Simulated scan of single mutants.
Amino acid sequence: MNAADLAAWIRHSAELVSADAERLTRLDAAIGDGDHGHNLDRGFRAAAGALPEDAPPGKVLIAAGRAIVSKTGGASGPLYGTALRRAGKALGDAGDVDAAALGAALRAALDGVRDLGKAAEGDKTMVDALAPAVAAYEAALADGADLAGCVRAAAGAAARGAEDTVPMQARKGRASYLGPRSVGHMDPGASSTALLLRGLADVTGEG
């Protein structure tokens, strides 16, 4: 992958989030503030408009992360912004991103989300989609899969992880205030995380 590919991912993610904003907001209305989809839509639109030209891949992600923090309300802005900035920093100034480098960037993104949100798997948050996605990516890489294959594995694991939040009781965020009433609802952050990884799979699969 190169900078153009990662910029294409951010733009495609903006399109996917915009198309799915109402569903994400409905998910959030059930157990949160009811603004996740619209907030994320605003943030990714800003990110798509803030992508630098003639910059290495890492700088593309850092710029997108900064825009998301600036324009996205609620908890999702800092979390997604941190994820993208940490991923960008992990890539450094390299001009091309191979499968190992992208895996390291995704691991850095997960670490950033965990550091900021203090959430673990099972807490019913975006970590429940992102952590299995990173694990699946790393397992596929260890098995010799190419970059696109690793991303497909990650996207599939993220989708399953989001579904797995439905029977969980939330232990973090506003949803945790509901206690047992949070059971039976998909976590909106896990759902949007799965959406973004699906977008990455779409972009890497085009090659």
Rank of each mutant, 00 (worst) to 15 (best):
V166P: 09
A109D: 02
A159Q: 13
L79T: 06
W9M: 05
A135R: 15
R114H: 09
P78I: 04
A175F: 09
A101P: 03
G103N: 07
A119G: 06
I31Q: 07
H38D: 07
I68C: 03
A30F: 06
L102A: 12
G122V: 01
V17W: 06
R86Q: 11
A105W: 09
M168V: 02
R171P: 00
A133E: 13
G65K: 04
S182H: 08
L84T: 10
A63N: 03
H36A: 14
P56V: 05
D41I: 03
L197F: 10
K89M: 11
E206W: 02
R11P: 02
A201V: 02
G205Y: 08
R45C: 01
A136F: 06
E121L: 13
D187W: 10
A120V: 01
G156K: 14
E138F: 12
L130Q: 12
T25E: 04
D143L: 13
L6K: 11
G205S: 08
G112F: 11
P57M: 13
P167C: 00
A135E: 15
G32W: 14
M186G: 05
S192A: 09
A21V: 07
C150H: 10
R160I: 14
V69Y: 01
G81A: 02
A140G: 11
A139G: 05
H185K: 08
P132S: 13
S13T: 08
A170V: 04
R66Y: 04
A119R: 02
V69K: 06
R181V: 01
A8I: 01
A90V: 09
G173K: 02
G112C: 12
V203N: 08
A162L: 12
S191K: 13
R85I: 15
I68T: 05
Y80G: 04
L40N: 10
S191T: 15
L106Y: 07
R198L: 07
V60E: 07
A100Y: 04
G77R: 10
A158G: 10
G161L: 10
L51N: 06
G88L: 12
A135K: 15
T125H: 00
D143V: 00
G32F: 15
A175R: 05
Y137Q: 12
A46K: 05
G95I: 00
S13A: 14
M1E: 13
L40A: 09
S191Y: 13
A29P: 01
L197T: 09
A139S: 15
K89T: 10
A142Q: 15
A75H: 04
G184Q: 09
A64N: 00
A170E: 06
D41C: 10
I31P: 10
N2E: 14
V183G: 04
G88I: 09
A99W: 10
A63V: 04
K172E: 01
G103P: 00
L200F: 08
A21T: 08
D33P: 09
K59M: 08
D41K: 15
A99Q: 11
T25M: 10
N2W: 08
T193R: 04
L6M: 11
R42S: 08
V183D: 05
E15M: 07
R114W: 07
A21W: 05
Y137S: 11
A55N: 05
R171I: 05
D115H: 12
